[in-house]
Amino acid sequence: MHKALVMEADACTGCHQCEMMCSYGKVGAFNISKSVMDITAFDGGALNVPSTCTQCEGAWCMVVCPVQAITVNPATGAKEVSAEVCVGCKVCTIACPFGAINYDPDSGVVTKCDLCGGAPMCVEACPTTALAYMAEDSTGYEKMRRHAVMSAGLPEGTA
């Protein structure tokens, strides 16, 4: 059973440390624009919602990739982008109905959450329980996954 990155908006204070650490892990710099974890603030910061790729079963990004640049890491279940293989065509960025894979003009390839190979830096950085890395069958994960399938509008198992 793979672990999942579970995001709990109620516990998020909007400190953005997860974004800082994510960008550091991704590009070696504290630059929130390079983070693949996003905190969206509502009502002037009264509510903060963390979001990133849920490593959904549908994996629209992986299915649509024309050069097989996105593959599953068997150890974590994460869908990972190979920067060597990706040509930068961006078709995954419109196919993902969650907007969770994005093009980085500086690198010329797409970027997304890869669970940091099994030790997500965002979780380590989170000072509350807003981000946790836990067994997939723990509370809420199934709900998120159902939501993923539903949101994409395809019957389960087709994409």
């Binding site: 960025t93 196919a95 993902c96 969650f98 994005n102 509008g153």
Partner: peptide, 14 residues
């Protein structure tokens, strides 16, 4: 724009 464009698909299809 190149950030989070996929949400357009999500919003339209759902």
């Amino acid at each position: 724009y190149h950030e989070h464009l996929g949400v357009l698909r999500g919003l339209i299809e759902t």
